[in-house]
Simulated scan of single mutants.
Amino acid sequence: MELVLNNLPQALIIIGILALIIEVAVLGFATFVLLFLGLSLIFSGTMMYAGLLANDWMTALWVNAVLTFVLALTLWKPLKRLQQPSNNEQVNNDFADIDFVLEDDLNSNSQVFHSYSGIQWQLKSEQPLSKGTHVKVVKKTVGVMWVKEI
């Protein structure tokens, strides 16, 4: 205990780093509590080491309480937004707006291809389409264009 009291700034920094390691490695940013505490311990230890704060337990306690609260207020919402799943909506772009006339019958069993931009794309549709039907691309996946009748 004497070692920690004599080296309070370094002890705060080490405890802060350990809290960050536990938050990232063990909890995987699930709670953020140790993140805020770890950051405040590192900040307060650094300020004590630089001589900006008094080197005693009472100062360390109050500074960490205030810093943890301020960090939680400022970082909570941005970090929560990062945890939310991404939106996988299809983006409408010029590639999806192409239309053409089918050269073969298209049904669930057929292997129909369309050449576009130097690539042979397999065509698929939710309903059967006959040869000569004017179609529009409504969705695209890897190597596949989903079409529907215009």
Rank of each mutant, 00 (worst) to 15 (best):
3 L>C: 08
100 F>R: 09
25 A>E: 05
81 R>V: 14
17 I>D: 05
141 T>L: 13
128 P>S: 12
102 L>N: 03
64 N>P: 09
102 L>A: 11
39 L>I: 09
28 G>N: 14
123 L>F: 00
147 V>T: 07
69 F>R: 08
29 F>P: 08
95 F>H: 13
70 V>L: 13
68 T>V: 03
107 N>Y: 04
20 L>E: 07
119 I>C: 11
132 G>H: 03
42 I>E: 00
40 S>C: 01
37 L>Y: 03
107 N>R: 07
54 A>S: 06
100 F>K: 12
107 N>A: 04
76 W>L: 08
7 N>Q: 06
57 W>H: 13
114 H>K: 11
43 F>I: 01
97 D>K: 09
14 I>A: 06
19 A>T: 04
110 S>Q: 01
29 F>Q: 11
133 T>S: 14
40 S>T: 03
141 T>F: 08
27 L>D: 09
42 I>R: 02
45 G>K: 07
134 H>K: 10
56 D>A: 14
13 I>G: 04
102 L>D: 09
16 G>S: 02
108 S>I: 07
66 V>A: 06
13 I>V: 10
136 K>E: 15
65 A>E: 03
90 Q>M: 14
38 G>C: 05
67 L>A: 01
58 M>S: 11
106 L>F: 02
131 K>S: 15
93 N>R: 14
36 F>W: 07
123 L>H: 02
104 D>Q: 11
101 V>W: 12
146 W>P: 05
30 A>N: 06
54 A>H: 06
8 L>F: 02
148 K>H: 10
81 R>T: 15
44 S>F: 06
52 L>F: 07
82 L>F: 05
82 L>M: 01
66 V>S: 03
108 S>L: 04
89 E>T: 14
136 K>W: 05
1 M>F: 09
65 A>D: 02
48 M>E: 00
82 L>C: 02
54 A>W: 03
28 G>M: 10
140 K>D: 14
82 L>R: 00
110 S>T: 07
27 L>V: 02
115 S>C: 12
96 A>C: 14
8 L>P: 02
29 F>D: 05
21 I>D: 03
34 L>P: 01
81 R>I: 13
57 W>I: 15
59 T>H: 11
128 P>N: 10
100 F>P: 05
11 A>F: 03
17 I>M: 13
89 E>F: 13
77 K>F: 07
35 L>H: 02
68 T>F: 01
111 Q>S: 12
